[in-house]
């Protein structure tokens, strides 16, 4: 596998605000999820990778190029920005073809590629309509079409699922799988963690402009084995159950819900907790109705790591 993005001591400041702080990271080809809460530095990192802004300190190379205002580099990447902006008076076809012609394609080639890209993102029926009449999901797909129409080697996508309904999200996820299947590397940012988890095992976690963790999701999840896990139980006698659970030495905290019907707890040893729970539940006649380890998803890993 070859490296597509290499950042060394990369920092970016917006006046006194730190967008990205001393980030050193190497991203291999394939699909990589860039995760973090709002303000983590995801968009700043993507803007640097997309060549929209320059580093304040350090350096970033993508596909071997310094991205900022680099025309050779722009031939090889597709950037789907987060902002919900299009040329409203253009049709979807005109929009994508216009940008392709700016990339140097002839009118005929640009039109043919635009049609293919729009078909690929599912906008075949709407490509002759003005984009100002598009729904949010259609606008997102039109932006994606312009990013893939010139067959880039790397696709950079900023928060593609933001504001989409579940069906549109599923369709978008499927599309990313197809694009990646064609050998295109994808760098995708999101704060909707389970959707990124559905796209790739490789993630980069950012928080407050710094690298928090990087690697396959299972490895990151492994970090949890050394740390507290969360469990939520619903029971008829949740109050008594909470009181007894608090006496277990591996239970760090217990919280009773406001309706008194469920208990949330943190334990240092999940295996011991599972083995001791039946006894405690029987003794307190808790009447456990459901139980769930809320640490099962990437979101929980993320929550833990940033807390």
């Amino acid at each position: 596998m070859s490296t597509i993005v290499e950042a060394t001591d990369l920092s970016r400041y917006y006046g006194p605000v730190v967008g990205l702080n001393d980030l050193t990271v190497r991203i291999e080809e394939g699909v990589t999820g860039l995760l973090g809460p709002n303000g983590a530095g995801k968009s700043t990192f993507l803007k640097l990778v997309a060549g929209e802004i320059r580093p304040s300190r350090g350096r970033v190379t993508v596909l071997g190029y310094a991205p900022f205002a680099n025309r050779e580099y722009f031939r090889r990447v597709g950037f789907c920005p987060q902002q919900d902006a299009l040329y409203g008076e253009m049709t979807g076809l005109e929009f994508v073809a216009f940008l392709l012609r700016l990339s140097g394609f002839s009118r005929a080639d640009a039109n043919a590629r635009a049609v293919r890209a729009l078909e690929r993102v599912g906008l075949a029926d709407a490509m002759e309509r003005r984009t100002r009449g598009y729904s949010k999901g259609m606008r997102q797909r039109a932006r994606l079409a312009q990013a893939i129409a010139h067959d880039p080697r790397l696709l950079i996508v900023d928060e593609p699922m933001s504001g989409l309904d579940p069906l549109a999200r599923r369709a978008m996820t499927q599309l990313f799988h197809e694009i990646a299947g064609g050998g295109v590397s994808i760098l995708i940012s999101s704060h909707i963690l389970h959707e990124v988890e559905g796209l790739t095992r490789n993630v980069v976690l950012l928080h407050r402009g710094r690298l928090l963790a990087q690697g396959p999701v299972p490895e990151i999840r492994g970090l949890l084995s050394r740390h507290p896990r969360k469990v939520e139980l619903r029971a008829r006698n949740a109050r008594a159950l909470a009181s007894s659970l608090l006496e277990l030495d591996h239970v760090l905290s217990v919280r009773l819900s406001t309706d008194g019907g469920s208990v949330q707890l943190e334990t240092r040893d999940l295996d011991r907790f599972w083995s001791e729970l039946p006894r405690v539940a029987t003794e307190t006649r808790a009447g456990v109705q459901s139980l769930e380890s809320t640490d099962a998803s990437l979101e929980a890993v993320f929550d833990y790591l940033v807390s």
Partner: peptide, 8 residues
């Protein structure tokens, strides 16, 4: 962004 991410 669309214009400045093109090789123009």
């Amino acid at each position: 962004t669309f214009l400045f991410s093109r090789p123009v």
